[in-house]
Nucleic acid binder design. Structure first.
Lengths: 238, 238
DNA sequence: AATTTAATGTGTCGTAAGTACATATTTATT
DNA sequence: AATAAATATGTACTTACGACACATTAAATT
């Protein structure tokens, strides 16, 4: 480093006091996907900020000094859905200077998959609701961008990894599964080709039961093979 | 929320004072890949921490209050390589409580690709050097985990997206390209099948020139079609 | 100048997967 | 008993993948 560079560097360091580096808050935001009524949905809460009156936001919170990222995410999931042990996957970290009106907040985003019907949300006491992903146009903060990013990631993963089953009850028919794929991908699939493709993957077991609550010829029921029940698609490197 | 839950929650909030939330530092770490001598390399610096004496670490720095994540990454790249306009891609954010010995630091990691030969590193004045990725066993902090995660991401992207060309000079032969793929993927490829696969992708133009510095029959030279020169593989959603 | 050496450049065949497409069967409903 | 609606299934065509061999070209050697 030349002397000139050194002087510049020193001035720069003095300008930015050490404490300022800690004047950034860190949050976690969770895109919680569910599936119901043949639609992909996401769990949102009414924003309590004036700037975003009438808009919805993702579920998130500041990270506490004594918890790591996954712990913070699971805390949010537990608080909002009452469920532990959900599928969770980190997607991206957003940190634009102006993304939060009240100061610098960097947020680490995750998506999570949950079987809506199988649990009881605590939907009563606040403005927490499931919203069809396709109908969401505007959100608080940069949350629409986060939602789009997470949906894109989900779409990428869904044909390669057996993650989609976290959105379904334990037993399901091939029709239900196909409808779910279509809801996520946003286009129709050919029924025969879809079945062939799924059968090649060898993810399912035929449990020798039939649907019994449908107003038409019932289909066979299947389960995901237990060895594919993972809580994240990410390879563990440690 | 029951009264009991409410009391617990309140106690919890009191315990963790608001200011503590800002007692977390945020850094960016860059895995800067290069390619030379038929090996994939990564740019590392000797750790200046006593705890990690003799070990190397990635290039990173705390994020300044007035810069966003990409700006911080590009600042690091510019400081360390003298180059702007490099390929850069966010990979993952690491935030274990104990990942940094001197306090809580959450780090957002990126990988970057650079053509080693085409630029002059400021390698002189510090312990900054290229290291063959395969020979790195132990690193400071959790940097080996970060390196492995970034390498895995690079390996995933390399056959799907035209990113690898950021590691090569503008003009290259198919042999050079194949050797680079092999260095990244870690296994050999069949020459004829490789050429077929590349030609299907239609990424390259034959520029009607030949190699002239090889001690054997020279091969044709190719360029990446300009429409594929991107600085990130990530889809822009905004 | 002739020979040797080493890398370039190219094609086929078998297998696996992707796509388009139609009919018989089963159950609930009328 | 007849109808309606969904399930279950197979074939032919095309496209991608993987294994594999030989003629050609230029440099290096003799």
């Amino acid at each position: 480093m030349t002397e000139k560079e050194l002087r510049l560097k020193t001035a720069e360091i003095e300008k930015i006091s050490h404490l300022d580096y800690f004047n950034i808050a860190i949050s976690v935001d969770c895109v919680i996907f569910g599936y119901d009524d043949k639609e992909l949905k996401v769990l949102l809460i009414k924003s309590d900020l004036e700037e975003f009156a009438g808009l919805h936001s993702l579920l998130g919170d500041l990270i506490r000094p004594d918890e790591d990222l996954e712990s913070a995410s699971y805390r949010i999931l537990r608080d909002r859905t009452g469920m532990d042990d959900l599928y969770l996957e980190q997607v991206h970290t957003f940190g634009s200077l102006d993304r939060h009106p009240s100061g610098r907040v960097i947020t680490i985003t995750y998506y999570s998959l949950i079987d809506i019907k199988h649990h009881k949300l605590k939907l009563s006491h606040n403005e927490l609701n499931w919203h069809p992903v396709n109908e969401i146009k505007k959100m608080a903060f940069d949350h629409k961008l986060i939602l789009d990013t997470c949906l894109a990631r989900l779409q990428e993963q869904v044909m390669e990894h057996p993650v989609i089953f976290n959105l379904l009850p334990e037993k399901f028919s091939l029709r239900e599964l196909q409808e779910l794929y279509q809801a996520i991908l946003g286009f129709e699939l050919d029924r025969r080709n879809f079945r062939k493709k799924i059968s090649i993957k060898d993810w399912l077991v035929d449990i020798d039961e039939m649907e019994n609550d449908v107003p038409h010829r019932p289909g066979k029921l299947y389960k995901l093979k237990p060895e594919f029940r993972k809580k994240t698609a990410r390879k563990k490197l440690v």
